[in-house]
């Protein structure tokens, strides 16, 4: 019994010290981590809507649905994230769309597809094709040779989500 208490106390002291140390480091890095995530978000928003000057998040139940992009208070369009199930991973894409339903640009935020084949969906030769395409025009995009699954996954996810967001904007939501 005495032994048990001794073990428990020793572990408790070590854990308490570890917790204290972690709390210290956390308070020190927390603001930096949040700032980094915000900066990255802003950079990718800026990349898909280069002409916009500021963005406003549109939220439902605390979840960001999309971002409205403004240029000096005039509504330019929207930017939103979409995910697709690719060949071997989830492909997350940021899409910029003008208010009349044209894709401005897309950017692949994260993917883990086959290197050299599916991973080429992140390259400008593929993502560049989306620029200035209307929603119907998205069907004309040519898939990467040897990586049809990854390419169509991105194309379909962009198209479905863009249609959804376009309807939201049209209805003034």
């Amino acid at each position: 019994m005495k032994e048990m208490l001794q073990y428990g106390l020793t572990l408790m002291i070590i854990c308490a010290m570890a917790t204290g140390l972690l709390a210290g480091v956390n308070s020190f890095t927390k603001s930096e981590i949040i700032a980094r995530a915000q900066a990255e978000q802003d950079a990718s928003l800026k990349e898909v809507m280069p002409e916009a000057t500021n963005f406003a998040a549109v939220e439902t139940n605390g979840e960001v649905i999309y971002y409205k992009a403004y240029k000096n208070d005039a509504l330019l369009g929207a930017a939103f994230k979409t995910t697709a199930k690719g060949y071997s991973s989830e492909i997350e894409t940021m899409v910029g769309m003008t208010k009349d339903g044209q894709i401005a640009a897309i950017k692949v935020l994260s993917q883990n597809e086959t290197p050299g084949l599916g991973s080429r969906v992140a390259e400008p030769s593929f993502t560049g094709q989306f620029a200035n395409k209307s929603l119907e025009g998205l069907n004309e995009i040519s898939a990467i040779t040897g990586a049809t699954i990854s390419s169509t996954a991105v194309m379909n996810s962009v198209k479905t989500k863009a249609e959804e967001i376009f309807n939201l904007i049209k209805n003034g939501k």
Partner: peptide, 23 residues
């Protein structure tokens, strides 16, 4: 268990620092 607590603490510190300065 003591070793693991010590190691896990330093791993978490590493992860926090990495997240903050090299995301």
């Amino acid at each position: 268990p003591c070793y693991i607590v010590v190691i896990a603490t330093f791993v978490t510190i590493t992860e926090l620092i990495m997240k903050a300065y090299s995301p």
